[in-house]
Design a protein around this nucleic acid. Sequence first.
DNA 1: CAGAAAAAGGATAATTTTGTCCTATTTAAA
DNA 2: TTTAAATAGGACAAAATTATCCTTTTTCTG
Lengths: 144, 144
Amino acid sequence: MFSKACEYAIRATLLVASHSLMDERVSVKDIAEATASPVAFTAKIMQQLNRCGILYSVQGKQGGFEMTKEQMQATKLSQIVTLIDGDRVFTGCGLGLRECNALKPCPLHERFSSVRGELKAMLDETTVLDLALGLKDGLTFLRT
Amino acid sequence: MFSKACEYAIRATLLVASHSLMDERVSVKDIAEATASPVAFTAKIMQQLNRCGILYSVQGKQGGFEMTKEQMQATKLSQIVTLIDGDRVFTGCGLGLRECNALKPCPLHERFSSVRGELKAMLDETTVLDLALGLKDGLTFLRT
DNA sequence: CAGAAAAAGGATAATTTTGTCCTATTTAAA
DNA sequence: TTTAAATAGGACAAAATTATCCTTTTTCTG
Ligand code: FES
Ligand code: FES
């Protein structure tokens, strides 16, 4: 469904958010540990998330990553997916035709575009804050 | 969403089905041309589809691939997906946790498993015959 | 100020997925 | 019976994704 990079990005963002709710800053090392992700790969993803303003970083000793509550409210899951994987999962043809076009539909178009629309709606309606709250309260988890 | 191999598999199966409805046999070359897929890669996929009985092949000159109407009715899209990509798209965690477990859910579990269930239901309810009919009638397409 | 901890970023490596090539086998038709 | 067209299948190659390593820069702390 999503690439590994995208899964790591969402997990990392949610971890940073849940810690920011408790006014804690987290390092890449912390993030990788808490989300069971490879450290250096996660570091690259954090750079992308920082560059596009989904969260922010503090360099130097005692540095790490944080999010403001505004960032948590403003960031929809769909934005993270689009940033990392592009919009193919939201707009592409389920059978891989070059474009999904209702005027020249693939055999699965009608059924697939409906499900794809629900996926998009779900990710558009879900903010980082929505998910970070359950994580902070220990109701949900980011690793086994 | 699906791998390239899986997209090719579905497109190829639907092409064979629509031709079988007109009592025509199709070669790998025909399939690759009609679905805009790489020939040799498609050939490998056809072998898988044949081995597991989704369709059948006839070797030798004038050979090719065909499906019986029974095969078309019996084959659900979900079977082709599972054959090529496995069942991760139907059962896996949206955030990539090792297993999707409602007792230790990821933050997206509730919302994701709902959409994933609709995808599965859609592919379970759709047979190759369902889709081949529109293709035969020129209402849907397998390439741009 | 010096040293250490941490992010930034470039280069490279491993793995998986996708795609190609070539040979053997099967079968219809000339 | 020979030839040609087609699938079967193994080996290999290219590309994309995932992952690691190493150096530089920043900034806190002693
Ligand atoms: S054309 Fe295939 S999903 Fe729209
Ligand atoms: S645990 Fe993540 S989707 Fe179920």
